[in-house]
């Protein structure tokens, strides 16, 4: 997916993109050294803060260990516990899937907004700003704000619903088994929707207008143009949105931590909050590690599934051009 016009002079030959533009690239080996040098700091950071911890978790998941005791081999004990005895694990897994499945709702809404602000109406930048404004809000604060909006007695949402005559008395949204998860999801969508919108807008703007013009000449109506041109061409952006949606199920940690603490019961526990409470509240780091490994594999599988649906564009996750 390397872009740019490929009319390079012969001396830089096979290389693409910006290759060969930086001094000292005459020799292939020096070139490679430079590439790895450039990658090194980022790779080091990911190694320290992502890969090593993941390996640590993977090793731990086959052991009995706590901060106070030396490790002992446990075989598949924790995996057995998780898969066959831990109902809470299955519930939190289910909740996580629901949470991720709600991402498309947000994405569809964001796409609608993006299509609207992609027109040449006045004040489109103001709308864009408003829609993005909730994303920079600190998640802890989002939790606090929405906790009160959802409050049974003085919450704005209940007030509006009562005034509209939809309900007679306040619903304790965050304390109810049925409503707690949808409520948390709503708050989460509110926060992340601006981010989706911006990503999609990027994709929309990279579509050459000439394509639409050609389609219009061919007599395609708006819906046909959307299905034949817009959707296929914003697939990379949609893929990125899905990835953000998946990741959102662990960045929502702060939100759930503040709003419900996972309750009532495990109604709003996601895998990530469950792992956290097993590790730090129950001091079962070994068991938490096993769930972490499963969690990672699951998410990875979902990401690659999303990638396949997006047409294998993962390497070219792009937000510009």
């Amino acid at each position: 997916m390397a872009g740019g016009a490929d009319n390079a002079p012969a001396l830089e030959g096979r290389r693409r993109g910006l290759a060969g533009l930086i001094p000292g690239s005459r020799k292939r080996s020096r070139d490679l050294a430079l590439i790895w040098l450039f990658l090194a700091p980022s790779l080091a950071i990911f190694a320290i803060y992502r890969i090593v911890p993941l390996i640590w978790n993977a090793v731990l998941s086959f052991q009995f260990w706590s901060p106070y005791k030396p490790a002992e081999f446990a075989g598949l004990y924790h995996y057995e516990e998780m898969l066959f005895y831990d109902d809470a694990f299955w519930q939190t897994l289910w909740n996580t899937l629901i949470f991720m499945a709600s991402a498309p709702v947000g994405i569809v809404f964001a796409l609608a907004v993006a299509l609207l602000v992609d027109t040449n109406i006045r004040g489109r930048n103001v709308y864009r700003t408003i829609f993005f404004m909730s994303y920079p809000v600190m998640t802890v604060a989002v939790g606090i704000i929405w906790q009160w909006l959802f409050n049974e007695n003085v919450g704005l949402i209940n007030y509006v619903l009562i005034e509209l005559g939809i309900i007679d008395r306040g619903i304790p949204f965050l304390e109810s088994f049925d409503w707690a998860l949808p409520s948390v999801i709503l708050a989460s969508i509110w926060q992340v929707i601006g981010f989706y919108m911006i990503i999609l807008l990027t994709g929309l703007q990279s579509i050459p207008p000439s394509l639409y013009e050609a389609a219009a000449i061919d007599g395609a109506n708006a819906l046909q143009r959307f299905r034949r041109i817009t959707l296929p061409l914003i697939r990379p952006s949609l893929f990125l949105c899905f990835v953000v949606g998946i990741i959102n199920s662990f960045t929502a940690f702060d939100l759930i931590f503040v709003m419900t603490g996972g309750g009532p019961g495990h109604a709003t526990d996601l895998l990530i909050t469950y792992i956290y409470s097993i590790a730090f509240r129950l001091s079962k780091f070994d068991y938490a590690a096993a769930i972490t490994v499963v969690n990672f594999l699951l998410f990875l599988a979902l990401a690659f599934l999303a990638n396949r649906l997006a047409g294998g564009e993962a390497g070219a996750v792009k937000t510009g051009g």
Binding site: A88, F177, G263, P264, G265, H266, S277, L282
Partner: peptide, 20 residues
Amino acid sequence: QDAAIKDAFYPELQAALLGE
């Protein structure tokens, strides 16, 4: 495993008390 027992017991009790 006080906390684990609490986590196992209370959600069940809560569901019963709330008629779930």
